[in-house]
Write a protein that binds this DNA or RNA. Structure first.
Length: 792
RNA sequence: GCGGACGUGGCGAAAUGGUAGACGCAGCAGACUUAAAAUCUGCUAUCCGAAAUGGGUGUGCGGGUUCGAGUCCCGCCGUCCGCACCA
């Protein structure tokens, strides 16, 4: 309608665990289940009339997609961006499968209920950390992304700079003579009071071999809870190793070495030095084990070395009690310590990242097979590209626990492509985030013989406007950015950012209805309250009769509790099936409702009443359309014409800004005015133009109207109505008149009146005179075409 | 704990520092109808008032800047989101 060439594709992220779960529960093949789901969703989308380019439809579970993904994986492998290392996974010993973090509930497998083990497996990783700096820097250029998402990615990448250095052990333990630590606060080095090691630290392990109590403590650290709540409340615990280290700046100063449960092996060096006065966690620890607490940063008031209280000072200040650092700012002292460490050779400036390399191995069936063959002689060998795709075998079952690929009779047995000896296929499949990291390239171009055609991709990409939920703010969007950079770095692409603009849309929400047993609990000694216990159930909206002040269950007429408006989910049963609603009200009403109420970035509370309102509006439109289908009204209606042009321009602007709810409001205003107006040529024009501006929202009825008007072709191809700029501005304006900032009167006058005229008109107002009540006028503020404020 | 966003009628929401509540939903009253539905008309922040083209109050709470604050600043309270023993 506006003459742009738009590529709006649709595809299916079709691999993953839901299909495997369904296979186990319903005994259907994951592929069958997935394809049936795709078919039903596709038909829903088609019913709603979305203008997708279906010729580019793809599904990640089809060999023509994942085969090309395998080719890309091999490219990255050959480009040195893929490697294998041992990594811990959550292993369910009963289901013999690897679990995602969210499948581990209270340390137990969600399906089997078995105690989950940490098991080391050799797994494939992508070197996303090679791009950490670039992924971080690139965020600055993504002007079209919400700040919130950029910030989330920044935190996720988690760059921190500081000093990495080693403490010399007073007595070397076999091969180990030093403890390497990392700190972002080297300025507080004189406040150090202990060194703490992770339970997985090599030194800890070595010591644990000879020390049973330590071994037990380290084990306890590892099996501790993993949920956020548990971590929050977990006590800081340590175990004194009996060792000491020498302070790098004072050979006479010995620090005790502990193993502590709050030190992570996979961040920094797996060891820290504690500065209790200026780190809350260290302070908690020091108080518990009665370690020295020395002030080294002063806020200006207190400079003494003795630090009392149980709240660490982490604010700005000046360094004190720190030998050569005294009097420096925190920043200067950091630099001074780094300089000294580097010149004396016991440490160096270091950047640490929270971001880890991306583990892409999944010990599962329903995913892209990793195209690698393990040969005893040649090691891991990529499958030659002319043998791709490596397809999934269909003859599998989920009756026995474990990965079906692993136990398939023949699938994994192949010859080494290099030496021809008997070898084994990799039986891990790729994380589904890999599938979704490059689909936009395949949408732009889908040749049979390679993943994409760079020339065609160049025409369409980067994606101008990406729309997705915030739930993808970090992982998917970061992986896609990485993947694009990775391909660029091996010369396959010539851009690094896949998505220019990102819009995060809200979710559809609905009230929840439930009945739960309540029990009395003691809140305090004197009070009791009622809490829900986990016995009871949720009810779906179609089981419930909504009344003015509550809701009742249809089957028994008894009240149910109306809960919060929440994201639709199966567990809360607050889902609404679109099919019967489309059946009853039509796709246009559903589309219009979704656009009309809330701005798209916000959640949309689904309401039956809202749908009905939209449905009535569609009826109103239709009545207008048939009324002018073939009339020959004459005569002018200048006010209506003006409103039409203002609406056409306004709606175009709102739609461009994705403010659909505002566009809808403007359309309502126009329709209200049309309905009140008398027949005229302008009215006929207004209604015919109206059809075009509502066409993107209610395409079905708009196309009908177009045919009814006797036009040929599709309204979707018709040009957007032209706007006469001169009609956009009114020639009269309403001016607000305030006295002391309070509204007292309004006057309507010609647009562009001079300040003097406005002041005169304002003072002439009877109401103004009344509220002035003879008071002395100190000042008159005049904002042309806006307001007059009289200050007394 | 850290970081971020948000807080406006019964509800969804509007409002470049310039008339708060546009527009919609729900509700109320009326018209049409034998009746109902649909449709149409009007009202609908709140308090005082019989009413007014009267006045007061009002954008979570308390301050501030400004001729003027929903909007800007400071401090609270609350809700939601993200991250989290990250050294």
């Amino acid at each position: 309608m506006q003459g742009y060439e738009v590529l709006h594709p649709m595809g299916w992220d079709a691999f993953g665990m839901p299909a495997e779960n369904a296979a186990m529960e319903k005994k259907v093949h994951p592929g069958e289940w997935t394809r049936a789901n795709i078919a039903s969703m596709r038909s829903q989308l088609k019913t709603l009339g979305f203008a997708f380019d279906w010729s580019r439809e793809l599904a990640t579970c089809e060999p023509d997609y994942y085969g090309q993904e395998q080719a890309l994986f091999i490219d990255l492998f050959e480009g040195g961006l893929v490697y294998r290392k041992e990594s811990a996974v959550n292993w369910d010993p009963v289901d013999m499968t690897v679990l995602a973090n969210e499948q581990v509930i209270d340390g137990k497998g969600w399906r089997s209920g078995a105690q989950v083990e940490k098991r080391k497996l050799s797994q494939w990783f992508l070197k996303i950390t090679d791009f950490a700096e670039d992924l971080l820097a690139g965020l600055d250029e993504l002007k079209g992304w919400p700040d919130k998402v950029r910030l989330m990615q920044e935190n996720w990448i988690g760059k921190s700079q500081g000093l990495q250095f080693h403490f010399a052990l007073a007595e070397a333990q076999d091969e180990i003579a030093t403890v390497e630590v990392f700190s972002t606060r080297p300025d507080t080095i004189y406040g150090a009071s202990f060194v703490a090691l992770s339970a997985d630290h090599p030194l800890t392990r070595q010591l644990a071999e000879k020390n049973e109590a330590l071994a037990a403590f380290a084990e306890e650290c590892k099996t501790g809870g993993t949920t956020a709540a548990e971590l929050e409340t977990m006590e800081k615990k340590g175990f004194y190793t009996g060792l000491t280290v020498t302070h790098p700046l004072d050979p006479d100063w010995q620090l005790p070495v502990y193993v502590a449960n709050f030190v992570l092996m996979d961040y920094g060096t797996g060891a820290v030095f504690g500065v209790p006065a200026h780190d809350q966690r260290d302070l908690d620890f020091a108080r518990k084990y009665d370690l020295p607490v020395k002030r080294v940063v002063s806020d200006g008031e207190d400079t003494g070395a003795i630090f009392s209280g149980n709240e660490a000072y982490t604010g700005p200040g000046t360094i004190v009690n720190s030998a050569f650092l005294d009097g420096m700012t925190i920043e200067a002292a950091q630099q001074a310590v780094i300089d000294r460490a580097q010149s004396e050779g016991w440490g160096k400036a270091q950047t640490t990242w929270r971001l880890r390399d991306w583990g892409v191995s999944r010990q599962r069936y329903w995913g892209t097979p990793i195209p690698i063959i393990h040969c005893d002689d040649c090691g891991p060998v990529p499958v030659p590209k002319d043998q791709l795709p490596v397809t999934l075998p269909d003859d599998i079952d989920f009756e026995t626990p474990g990965n079906p690929l692993e136990r398939h009779a023949t699938w994994k047995h192949v010859d080494c492509p290099k030496c021809g000896k008997a070898a084994r296929r990799e039986t891990d499949t790729l994380d589904t985030f890999v599938d979704s990291s490059w689909y936009f390239l395949r949408f732009a171009s889908q040749p049979d013989d390679r993943p994409f055609d760079p020339e065609v991709v160049k025409q369409w990409l980067p994606v101008t406007q990406y729309i997705g939920g915030v739930e993808h703010a970090i992982l998917h969007l970061l992986y896609a950015r990485f993947w694009t950079r990775a391909l660029a770095s091996i010369g396959k692409l010539d851009f690094t950012e896949p998505f220019e603009s990102l819009f995060t849309q809200g979710m559809v929400t609905h009230e929840t209805y439930s009945r739960f047993q309540e029990i009395e609990v003691a809140i305090s000694q004197s009070e009791t309250g009622k809490v829900n216990v986990g016995v009871g159930s949720y009810f779906s909206p179609d089981e419930v009769e909504r009344t003015a002040d509550g809701a009742t269950l249809k089957v028994d007429g008894q009240p149910v509790k109306v809960g919060r408006v929440e994201k639709m989910s199966k567990s809360k049963k607050n889902v609404v099936d679109p099919d019967p609603i489309i059946e009853q009200y039509g796709a246009d009403a559903v589309r219009f409702f979704m656009l009309s109420d809330s701005p798209p970035e916000r959640d949309l509370p689904w309401s039956e009443a809202g749908i009905e309102g939209s449905w009535r509006f569609v009826q109103r439109l239709w009545r207008l359309f048939i009324a002018v289908a073939d009339n020959d009204d004459t005569g002018e209606d200048k006010a209506l014409r003006r409103k039409l042009h203002q609406t056409v321009a306004g709606v175009a602007g709102d739609v461009e800004a994705l403010s659909f709810n505002k566009a809808v409001a403007k359309i309502f205003e126009l329709v209200n005015l049309i309905e009140k107006s008398q027949p005229s040529a302008d009215r006929t024009t207004a209604i015919k133009s109206l059809a075009r501006i509502v066409a993107p929202m209610v395409p079905h009825i708009a196309e009908e109207a177009w045919a009814l008007f006797g036009e040929s072709g599709l309204i979707a191809d018709a040009p957007w109505p032209e706007v006469d700029e001169s009609l956009l501005v009114d020639d009269e304006v309403t001016i607000a008149i305030q006295v002391r900032g309070k509204l007292r009167d309004t006057i309507t006058t010609a647009k562009g009146s001079s300040k003097e005229q406005l002041e005169e008109l304002a003072l002439a107002s009877e109401k103004v005179q009344r509220s002035l009540d003879g008071a002395e006028i100190k000042k008159v503020i005049v904002v042309p075409d806006r307001l007059v404020n009289i200050v007394i």
